[in-house]
Design a binder for these strands. Structure first.
Lengths: 162, 162
DNA sequence: GGTCAGGTACTCGGATACGGGTTGTCCGAGTTCCCAGGG
DNA sequence: CCCTGGGAACTCGGACAACCCGTATCCGAGTACCTGACC
């Protein structure tokens, strides 16, 4: 699992705490957690390409959420950073070598659909994706605020002081 | 996701088809699907360390299943090959930099337990693990035999011919 | 013929290189703001 | 005082390296089998 996922999630919550009226640059978001600014910028670009955040160049520019936090699921962020392809890709090794079934049923159009192993792995990964899609970032924000009530205000004050 | 997981799963089913009374060498299993023999051997070693298969050296040696296929879940194989640590590891970036909470609540013993993001990601990964643990390899074998009834016999014949 | 010793072939097991991908860094295009000058 | 033009600073965006893990390979330790000689 890519490290950038965690950074992107925290950044989204931080953007929500910052408020929708003010853009925050990648450098600010990175400094808040001592992260490499240029690399975090790369992740935020991925979020921008996915339509999760919007970016504005120039002074007073930066990133801001493209839609309310409730409309962003964990799955959206993971897919934006990690890429949409699934983690387990079936290489169809049973179609290779002597075990590739007799020359009678060489039907390449069936692909991985009928590979029992690929089917089971895909099912498990689907459960993972569903669990990610079931939680939106607003729920995470609420839980974070319960455990650290002062965090939003501290972030806003720190951003205003620069 | 590591490529070796797919190889290990197919190898386990093939071992079941081969029968419990005869060990199959890594070279045979690899040749059956045109896989690199030495590397598959590495994966099988991981399965042996996890207690999923047993290995016997020397001529007529090789690998055989350590327990019936019903007692082996997808999760067992994945954990053996990929390692037991979870894919998403929380780096606790919120504990770093200016956002590390005031000096008042610097409680390092709480760790990632109360990080809302880590909690949510772990929950999703738990769903994945449960889905993997819910299916055992015997179910997969049955499904594979329904779709390719001749496969077990073909494998046994090919092994006997060498 | 039976038994035993030696050699051989085959197996796993871990130590050893190679490559692709994630991680990390840098510089350029574009926009906005600020400031000075003129009307 | 108000307007305008130029410069400077700041931002994203993509192009460019470095490191690490998954991939692949090789050789050594150990074991069982087979062969041949001997009793």
């Amino acid at each position: 699992m890519s490290e950038g996922v965690e950074w992107a999630l925290h950044s989204c919550v931080n953007l929500a705490w910052s408020g929708p009226d003010r853009a925050v640059s990648a450098a600010r978001l990175a400094a808040w957690h001592d992260l490499p600014a240029a690399y975090l910028n790369k992740q935020l670009q991925a979020l921008a390409r996915a339509g999760i955040v919007t970016s504005t160049p120039g002074p007073r520019g930066g990133f801001r959420l493209a839609r309310p936090l409730e409309a962003i699921s964990l799955m959206d962020v993971v897919a934006a950073v990690e890429g949409p392809e699934e983690a387990f890709r079936c290489a169809e090794i049973r179609q290779q070598g002597p075990g590739a079934g007799g020359p009678a049923d060489s039907a390449p159009e069936k692909d991985a659909a009928d590979c029992a192993i690929a089917h089971a792995m895909t099912r498990a990964e689907l459960a993972w994706r569903r669990a990610l899609a079931a939680q939106n970032l607003d729920e995470i924000r609420q839980q974070a605020e319960r455990q650290a009530p002062g965090a939003p205000e501290r972030l806003r004050a720190w951003l205003a002081a620069r």
